[in-house]
Design a protein around this nucleic acid. Structure first.
Length: 638
RNA sequence: GCUCUUGUAGCUCAGUAGGUAGAGCACACCCUUGGUAAGGGUGAGGUCACCGGUUCAAAUCCGGUCAAGAGCUCCA
């Protein structure tokens, strides 16, 4: 009897009895056997020393592969846990998965880990790598595994295993004295981890992601194939941090935040101009798209929020104000109830639908302290918020119109790819299951008919309806929801909105909540980070700085500025007694898109020397031509 | 809100072992009129986040408050 294996190149290999990946690799070459870290048998990853089933297609995993990088990160988590338990025996282990660029492990321990502890742990990890401990898979009976971990005082681990089916065997991996529940596979020994890892930070995390549970200490690490890759990654983080919008906004003079108004911006002249440019741009887009702009009260009686259901779910996060007659007014965190009030004035016919109401006024939400993050997560902000009141039949078409606008807008900002999440019913929700079936069905069919690629985001919908989230990424890889589309059958009912149908009956409209940019503040933050401050000309607060070389050119430069301002371009004039190199440096650092340099030569010939942000080159142009070109480029692309 | 870390001049930071503070940039004034990322000089500027405690003495040690950063939870 013999067994045979298929190799990726189509060849096959015979053995007398089931062979391991290590043995198979050894037949191919000594070198490959040395390099083998794991194997893929019929696309399932398996430890390098385990026998492989007859007939499998076997691929050897070497260090260069993506799979190996996963293994390295997973091993790093185990080695870290081993180091932690050696150094701090009172620590319980919980879970330790791989993540983008690295890994973490959640520990339970009464005393917190300090940054110094991290250094010590890292050193011990290096020791464990040097010890070259074999990492071996063991298969245990579930109940025995539970008893084993309980006896070791590992309650969290025991809890995880206890929840597996009783008859299921569990795999444990042992390296030295350390043993952990793990699906595997792993590298064959700790030395294979190498030296491309580093512990990054310690942070709190809740057991099973629930804030009611014990808080664990999560240690984050990054791991790579070698030191060189690690250093490249660290360098990249450093570069990304330079794009932080809070840092750039200070350099660009856009806004500031201070203690007396936590979570809200003091917009400076330049920042506000930029913010207004964005608002005017999207306002123009919406007008073109058949939206009507409205404005609804900043404060409304709490009763209205109770009716809508917001109070029940978000009351704690709403700011309230008491009037002299003891009414409790809520500062609006959302526009929807206000828009319903406008819809309800008079009698609406089906012929009037869809009605699209948009609003840009400021919203206030009492976001948790720890959630605040510059422009990305603020307590006061405004949205390109709108509500479309329509019939069920109109949902598809309105969704298509919205998606079309969103694509155009994102393209104007250079976001040609973005992720879409489909968030369905949350546990805590308003409306019957039938209503939710209908709303989710409607949104799903709209998505399908448009061929949109979505990832499912279970249980993350709004309390009144399912939603699409359009997600953009910041400089250091964090995801932020920007655009959104939500299908809502609940609020029209709760707030008693209706229209007269063709047959004369009264019907509930469907409400589509939608925003293309989402929070204007957040969108600007993302945009600043994604462009490193190099904004499009039409959005930049000062598209151009006019810089003189000598003050004999002051008069001409002033005339140039006036000409630009008359043409609608907010130009900055810099006739300070400074050298041109100094001025160029300063305006470049402030991310001014264009610098017009003017010396005697330009003044005499009625020209300007143009320097574009990010380039060292200059281009000399006749003044009138340059003004016309810049005026055109700074016009909002509506 | 929770965990950890941090809070010194407008900004970036130094401040050794407790003995009431320092640099660079920015700012003001003077000199310099210089062709594309920092020309030179002089000067002003700080209740060391705030409150309390220990001490003869606190930016420094301890406690609390506020805020910021990272992560978790949350995100209508």
């Amino acid at each position: 009897m013999s067994v045979s294996y298929q190799l990726p190149d189509g060849a096959s290999m015979e053995f007398e009895q089931p062979a391991s990946a290590f043995e198979i690799a050894g037949r191919i070459s000594k070198k490959l056997a040395k390099q083998a870290l794991a194997a893929k048998a019929n696309d399932n990853l398996i430890d390098v020393y385990l026998p492989i089933d007859d007939g499998a297609t076997v691929e050897i995993i070497t260090r260069e592969t993506d799979e190996a990088l996963e293994l390295i990160r997973h091993d790093a988590a185990h080695v870290m846990a081993e180091a932690v338990q050696e150094l701090f025996p009172d620590t319980q282990v919980t879970i330790g998965p791989t993540i983008t660029n690295g890994f973490y492990y959640d520990f339970h321990r009464d005393t917190p880990f300090t940054p110094d502890d991290l250094k010590t742990i890292e050193k011990r990890m290096q020791d464990i790598v040097r010890r070259n401990e074999e990492i071996r898979r063991e298969v245990w009976d579930r109940d025995e595994a539970v008893a084993f971990f309980l006896e070791k005082g590992e309650e969290f681990k025991a809890e995880i295993i206890r929840e597996l089916p009783a008859d299921q065997e569990v795999s444990l991996y042992r390296q030295g004295e350390f043993i952990d529940l793990c699906r595997g596979p792993h590298l064959p020994s700790t030395s294979k981890l190498g030296d491309g890892f580093k512990l990054m930070k310690v942070a709190g995390a809740y057991w099973r992601g629930d804030a009611n549970n014990a808080q664990l200490q999560r240690i984050y690490g990054t791991a790579w194939r070698d030191k060189k890759e690690l250093n490249a990654h660290l360098k990249q983080i450093e570069e990304a941090e330079k794009r932080d919008h809070r840092k750039l906004a200070r350099e660009m003079g856009l806004f500031h935040i201070q203690q007396e108004a936590v979570g809200s911006m003091f917009w400076h002249p330049k920042g506000w101009r930029m913010r207004q440019n964005l608002e005017n741009y999207i306002r123009g887009k919406m007008e073109k798209g058949g939206y009507q702009e409205v404005s609804t009260p900043q404060m409304m009686d709490r009763i209205l929020w109770e009716q809508s259901g917001h109070w029940d779910k978000y009351g704690e996060d709403m700011f309230t104000v008491c009037t002299h007659d003891h009414k409790e007014m809520a500062v609006k965190p959302m526009n929807c109830p206000g828009h319903v009030q406008i819809f309800k004035q008079g009698i609406t016919s089906y012929r009037d639908l869809p009605i699209r109401l948009g609003e840009f006024t400021t919203l206030f939400r009492n976001e948790a302290h720890g959630a605040l993050h510059g422009l990305m997560r603020a307590r006061s902000f405004s949205q390109d918020d709108a509500h479309i009141f329509c019939t069920e039949e109109q949902i598809n078409e309105e969704t298509a119109g919205f998606i079309k606008m969103l694509r155009e807008v994102y393209e104007d900002f250079g976001f040609d790819s973005f992720r879409i999440k489909f968030s369905d019913r949350p546990d805590n929700r308003a409306g019957s299951d039938e209503t939710w079936d209908k709303a989710e069905g409607a949104l799903r069919s709209a998505v399908e008919s448009l061929g949109l690629e979505c990832e499912l985001n279970p249980g993350e919908g709004a309390f009144y309806g399912p939603k699409l989230e359009f997600v953009l990424r910041d400089a250091i890889g964090r995801d932020w929801q920007c655009g959104t589309l939500q299908v809502d059958f609940v609020l029209p009912d709760r707030l008693d909105a209706e229209y007269v149908a063709e047959d004369g009956s009264r019907q509930r409209p469907v409400m589509l909540h939608r925003a293309v940019l989402g929070s204007l503040e957040r969108f600007l933050g993302i945009l600043i980070e994604s462009t490193a401050g190099h904004l499009p000309l039409w959005l930049a607060p000062r598209p151009v700085a006019i810089c003189t070389i000598t003050n004999s050119a002051d008069e001409y430069a002033t005339a140039v500025q006036q000409k630009l301002v008359a043409a609608g371009v907010p130009a900055e004039l810099d006739i300070r007694n400074e050298k041109i190199g100094f001025k160029v440096r300063e305006h470049s650092r402030a991310k001014t898109p264009r610098i017009w340099v003017i010396g005697e030569q330009e003044a005499q010939q009625n020209q300007v020397a143009i320097r574009t942000l990010g380039s060292q080159a200059t281009e000399t142009m006749d003044l009138d031509e340059a003004v016309a070109a810049l005026a055109a480029a700074t016009r909002l692309p509506i």
